[in-house]
Design a protein around this nucleic acid. Structure first.
Length: 261
DNA sequence: ATTGTGGCCTGCCCGC
DNA sequence: TGCGGGCAGGCCACAA
């Protein structure tokens, strides 16, 4: 699913249409428009303008328009893809589909010469809104310093994994990346955040940085060392011991009870 | 205020 | 071969 790495690929993909005046907007699915946005309002807000910057905070893609125009915020849920001129930024999406069905097009921005940027989302778990609340998100995981990471988790309670996936504390980590980082840091995802000491938070920060760097190079959040073992009855790729499958923070969690303490 | 839970959505996969 | 049920999880509303 799109986690921070995939959305960063989408962001770079979106840079291909910067500066092009928007000629038209299609938004056939009202459910996909969030924060009271309507297809007519979206049309009025962006047609005649150009996107001038493609930013990203965590999993939220932000497209700034020129002049005093609004910022278009796009969330991709777990199956959303960004298609520019008929080409997807990512071919394979875990739990998604490789197909591009016309019925899955939720929002499309059209430019001259038949060019277009489309949000394609079979399961409709994503959404588009104008001027999203950027302040509700914590520091971005791809540019996260150790100091800001520790500050972001200060005072947190509950399973550490749930807090890492809390976008208000750290923005960008989803289920797969969090499991991979916790496995690399050798910390039990069920432990209470308030009982993790500073040295462990430093190790966790290093593991997050490493996970994002390595999996980013490999091509996405589904390329982790732990990922092939995300099935019942599998063993730890490090120690060979049996992996544990639990629900933590409402999400399916794989961890190694021998390696992770 | 912060954390926990359920539901949304629908393609896909497994078992019968 | 077809079909039904379970599963996937990012995000939000709501509860505690």
């Amino acid at each position: 699913m799109p986690e921070i790495l995939e959305v960063e690929f989408y962001r770079r993909h979106a840079e291909g249409v910067l500066g092009l005046p928007v000629l038209g907007v299609d938004a056939p699915d009202p459910w996909y428009l969030k924060g009271g946005l309507t297809a007519a309002a979206l049309h009025d807000a962006v047609v005649g303008r150009a996107f001038v910057a493609a930013r990203r905070i965590g999993k939220l893609l932000l497209l700034d328009t020129d002049g005093d125009g609004p910022t278009v915020g796009i969330r991709f849920g777990m199956t959303g893809r960004l298609v520019v001129d008929g080409r997807a930024a990512i071919d394979r999406l875990e739990y998604g589909s490789t197909r591009l069905e016309a019925a899955w097009q939720r929002v499309q921005f059209r430019f001259a010469d038949e060019r277009a940027m489309t949000v394609d989302d079979p399961r409709r778990l994503g959404g588009v809104e104008l001027d999203p609340d950027e302040g509700a998100l914590g520091p971005d995981a791809l540019s996260l310093t150790k100091t800001r990471f520790i500050a972001a988790l200060a005072g947190a309670h509950g399973p550490i994994k749930a807090r890492l996936m809390d976008q208000g504390r750290v923005a960008g980590l989803g289920n797969l990346l969090t499991d991979e980082a916790m496995w690399r840091a050798r910390i039990d995802p069920a432990r209470d955040a308030s009982e993790i000491d500073v040295a462990e938070y430093a190790a966790l920060h290093r593991a997050i940085r490493q996970t994002l760097r390595v999996l980013g190079k490999r091509g996405g959040s589904h390329t982790g060392d732990l990922h092939p073992a995300r099935a019942r009855g599998t063993s730890c790729p490090r120690c060979g011991g049996p992996l544990e499958r639990r629900t933590i923070g409402g999400r399916t969690t794989f961890s190694c009870p021998r390696c992770q303490r």
